[in-house]
Design a protein around this nucleic acid. Structure first.
Lengths: 215, 215
DNA sequence: AGAGAAACTGGACGCTGTCCACATTCGGAC
DNA sequence: GTCCGAATGTGGACAGCGTCCAGTTTCTCT
């Protein structure tokens, strides 16, 4: 064993770190990815950045503040996962079919992220006190939309193609989001936890079908 | 100010506490009720029980163990809330209408508990590692059914009255549970947090309607 | 009455977030 | 170019947490 081959920063020689804010944020993201929100530990983040614990306070007001920043990054990655799934849909037959497929893609991307990046997913929705995801640049994906906006956009398209009556549009994102999010939780640490991936996917498809039908 | 009028146990004079297990569990439940899962703190529980911190280890293997016990109690109370709502339904017109109303009551009870006993609700589904609610006597309500079983029973009745095709019955509880649970999370600490109760209730009704229709 | 087990106490350890006082360095005004 | 204030990082401390170990008190069973 050489001494600790953790991603140890090369023992900076300069007094100033140079980009500590980003280093701490990235350490926080790594921690969240590995162990979820409660694995985000200030001292460990500073350790990984090769800096004294207190240095963090020049860049984040508190552990909670760092948590919040990681949370935004997680939401942004969630948006990217959703966009990736949506991108696969393009160039299909009818606009109607495309609209439906896009809505399904939104759900599928959400679930894929939840199951693939569980730690980040949990972090995205870990909030000791209130807060959802109000519009915040840090939480958007590459397309410039955050997860809720992506869902809203898919629903708008559904209305535009005449597949969803306009009077049922308001608040529809909450119906869809509830179902898919709840399902993710059920799988991540609920009764569906031990169920094989294939079965999970098929139930997931039914959840999305239920939304399409019942919305 | 008299010195701390917290529910201070009357400074027991005996060496033995007498019923420390229950006292700790109840302190844990109180803490969870006030501040959710992470407010369950071993030392605080022992303080409220008027006992040294280590005494807890004679009754719970770890903080996690106490958390787990509180969690079971919370699930049991959730079952009770659901049962209470179901009880209101009895003696309606047709069996079909009764079956539908019962399913809605299951959802309504779930949501009422989530919004009324938020701390306990959060605790019921807080689980650092895996686990859902497998059958466990401590998690049942007065009727002898746990929350998931209550939902399952309502769905069975729906099938019995011919309102739900039997082939769609398997796994249906996961569709219903996903939607209602997700909605609860959305309200408790998601984008719907600031929305007035009346609006929340009306969206909640739509969620339940979606399930009835899309299941 | 005595022995062994069960319940509780006391003190300690390492970990955490956070605060205060101090050291170093950077960038701009003269 | 030099000086000075602001920004950044360090060191040491504190309280609170979960947990462990060793001792003490009490109960129960023979």
């Amino acid at each position: 064993m050489t001494k600790k081959l953790r991603t140890k920063p090369p023992a900076r020689t300069t007094y100033r770190h140079g980009d500590l804010h980003r280093a701490l944020l990235e350490a926080g993201i790594a921690l969240a990815r590995e162990g979820g929100p409660h694995a985000i530990v200030l001292r460990e983040a500073t350790r990984r950045a090769g800096v004294a614990p207190n240095a963090a306070y020049r860049h984040f007001a508190s552990r909670q503040d760092l948590l919040e920043a990681v949370r935004s990054a997680a939401l942004s990655e969630l948006a990217n996962a959703m966009e990736a799934e949506i991108a696969k849909v393009r160039r299909v037959k009818s606009p109607e079919e495309a609209a439906r497929a896009t809505l399904r893609a939104v759900g599928a991307g959400y679930l894929r992220f939840a199951f693939t990046e569980t730690g980040l997913f949990r972090t995205a929705f870990a909030t000791p006190e209130l807060l959802g995801f109000t519009s915040n640049p840090a939480r958007k994906g590459r397309s410039g939309l955050d997860p809720l906006e992506l869902l809203g956009s898919a629903l708008d398209t559904l209305v535009a193609t005449g597949l969803l009556p306009p009077e049922r549009r308001p608040g529809a994102e909450f119906l869809a989001w509830s179902s898919v999010h709840g399902f993710a939780m059920l799988v991540i640490d609920g009764p569906l936890h031990e169920v094989p991936r294939a079965d999970v996917d098929s139930i997931g498809a039914r959840v999305i079908a239920m939304v399409e039908k019942g919305i």
